[in-house]
């Protein structure tokens, strides 16, 4: 008789799998369904009215703008940083790698406060900016700034381990075969990190769209001006407009689901092409 591994007994396996499904159901599926149920509880008509509310539309626009600015910035910054710390040896490299993680370690609210103290009208840089008639805090640039801060580790964090593991020999091979720096990057580096890069972008995007804490500190919650979707959800909730709050929440949920679909599709395609 062969020795059974742990979990080999059918009843244990069934129990564990059942438990996993139960937890996923309670923690993930039920709340997701609840959002949609709540949003549609007063009927499609009210859902539509809430959706086409001018402040909601503005919040959607602002959120998309923030994501559209943040994600490309992160993409470039993340690739550059990962490239720097994995391909070069320089003093302070380790410190730099630790610094990348600061946005993960610091609470988003604290991050927002830091920006407020620095760039607010009473802040060190803020007063100079005021003199030059530049307002960053309580305006969309501030929201973009803190979102960049919050999301900046995602791309780099995805890339660094991969690039470390892959090493630089393929890039060196490309150079020794006469490739220019750009040719090397486009034809060798980029295809090799494509998957991780995409994953990092998807994560950064999800976070940029959904960030609440840091944004709420610097935005000032001005309806129709500096309200992003997550902030809008909270405002509506505080207004006792439950259906409205959940309607906006469905938008965030749909965005999240879309992100997942895109990610899964990209991964599937990657596997197809790599076979």
């Amino acid at each position: 008789m062969h020795q059974q591994r742990i979990g080999d007994q059918p009843w244990l396996r069934r129990l564990l799998i059942g438990l996993a499904f139960l937890l996923v159901g309670i923690l993930l599926v039920v709340p997701l369904v609840a959002i949609f149920a709540q949003a549609l509880s007063a009927g499609l008509n009210i859902f539509w009215v809430n959706l086409s509310d001018k402040y909601t539309l503005h919040a959607i626009g602002l959120t998309l703008l923030v994501a559209a600015l943040t994600v490309p910035l992160n993409l470039v910054f993340g690739v550059f940083l990962a490239w720097l710390v994995t391909r070069f040896e320089f003093p302070g490299r380790r410190i730099l790698m630790t610094l990348i993680d600061i946005p993960f370690a610091v609470s988003p609210v604290v991050a927002g406060l830091m920006y407020l103290l620095l760039y607010g009208s009473n802040g060190w840089l803020g007063s100079w900016l005021m003199d030059h008639d530049l307002q960053l805090m309580f305006a969309w640039p501030g929201i973009v700034m803190v979102t960049v801060f919050i999301t900046c580790p995602f791309v780099a964090r995805e890339l660094i381990p991969l690039m470390q593991q892959q090493g630089s020999s393929e890039e060196e091979a490309a150079l020794s075969l006469g490739a220019s720096g750009w040719q090397m990057f486009r034809r060798v580096t980029l295809p090799n990190i494509k998957c991780a890069l995409l994953y990092g972008v998807v994560l950064a995007n999800a976070r940029a769209v959904g960030e609440f804490g840091a944004v709420s500190v610097v935005s000032g919650n001005i309806r129709g001006e500096t309200n992003t979707l997550p902030l809008h959800v909270e405002l509506l909730y505080q207004d006792y407009n439950l259906v409205g709050a959940f309607t906006s929440a469905t938008l965030l949920a749909v965005l999240a689901l879309l992100t997942l679909v895109v990610k899964t599709f990209l991964e599937w395609r990657q596997q197809q092409s790599a076979r």
Binding site: E170, E172, A173, S176, R187, P191
Partner: peptide, 13 residues
């Protein structure tokens, strides 16, 4: 210069 790397460094994709 033709350079052959220790672990070949073929372009995997």
């Amino acid at each position: 210069v033709g350079f052959v790397f220790q672990h070949y460094a073929l372009f995997r994709h």
